[in-house]
Computed example of a mutant assay.
Amino acid sequence: MQDTLEEFGDDAEDSFRAMCAQAPENSLRRGITPYDLTMFNPHQLLRLVAELEELPDEEQTPAVRRVTEEAHKAIRHSGYLLFIGD
């Protein structure tokens, strides 16, 4: 088991959760569930980062940018990114 390097949450508007819920059915973002655990490995994170970086500027909220940054860190460390729903 790897150590936790960072922990953070969504913003007050739940912008990241809302963006995931509105994502296309075949996207990795859509698979991030607000009710359970979702974990991505480095290979999956490459695809997630690509999806996040392709979002229009108005959807690049601070929460989305933070997830992108942390995904890059996880990729560099051959780590995982874990999303914890309620």
Rank of each mutant, 00 (worst) to 15 (best):
E69R: 13
D36M: 12
V64S: 14
P62I: 05
Q44G: 09
V67Y: 00
R65G: 01
L55S: 08
T33P: 14
L46A: 00
A50W: 09
P42R: 04
Y35V: 14
E51W: 00
E51H: 01
T38P: 04
R65K: 10
S78A: 14
D57L: 08
T68S: 15
M39A: 10
D57K: 02
P42V: 03
S78I: 02
R65E: 09
F83G: 13
T33D: 12
G79Y: 01
K73G: 04
R76F: 10
A74R: 06
E59C: 08
P62E: 01
L52Y: 04
V49M: 06
T33R: 11
L82G: 11
Y80K: 06
V67D: 05
L55C: 05
P34W: 13
F83C: 14
D36K: 11
A74D: 05
P62V: 04
H72L: 14
P62W: 00
T68L: 07
M39F: 00
A50H: 06
T33M: 13
I84G: 13
Q60L: 06
L52C: 08
A74K: 14
Y35G: 15
M39C: 10
F83P: 11
P42E: 01
R47K: 08
V64N: 03
Y80C: 09
L37G: 14
L37I: 15
M39K: 06
H72P: 12
Y80V: 11
Y35R: 15
T33Y: 10
A74I: 11
E54C: 10
F40C: 04
E59Q: 08
T38V: 13
P62L: 04
L82T: 07
L48M: 03
L82Y: 13
D57M: 12
V67P: 13
P62A: 02
R66K: 12
K73I: 10
A71F: 08
A74H: 04
E59A: 09
I84H: 14
A50F: 00
P42I: 03
Q60Y: 02
L82A: 15
E70H: 07
A50N: 08
K73D: 07
I75L: 09
V67M: 02
V49T: 13
E70Y: 04
D57P: 03
R65S: 06
A63K: 02
T33I: 14
E69S: 15
E59I: 06
Y80W: 08
Y80E: 10
G79H: 09
G79W: 07
H77A: 15
F40M: 12
L55H: 02
E59T: 12
L82V: 12
L48G: 05
E53C: 06
T61Q: 06
V64I: 07
L46F: 00
R76H: 15
E51A: 04
T33V: 10
T68D: 15
E70D: 10
L52I: 11
R65Y: 01
Y80D: 15
T38D: 01
D36G: 13
H43Q: 06
T38Q: 07
H77G: 11
Q44Y: 02
Q60K: 07
P62D: 01
V67G: 04
H77P: 10
N41L: 05
G79S: 09
P42K: 07
H77I: 08
E58V: 05
E51L: 05
E59Y: 04
V49Q: 03
E70R: 15
L55N: 04
L52T: 05
V49I: 12
P42Y: 02
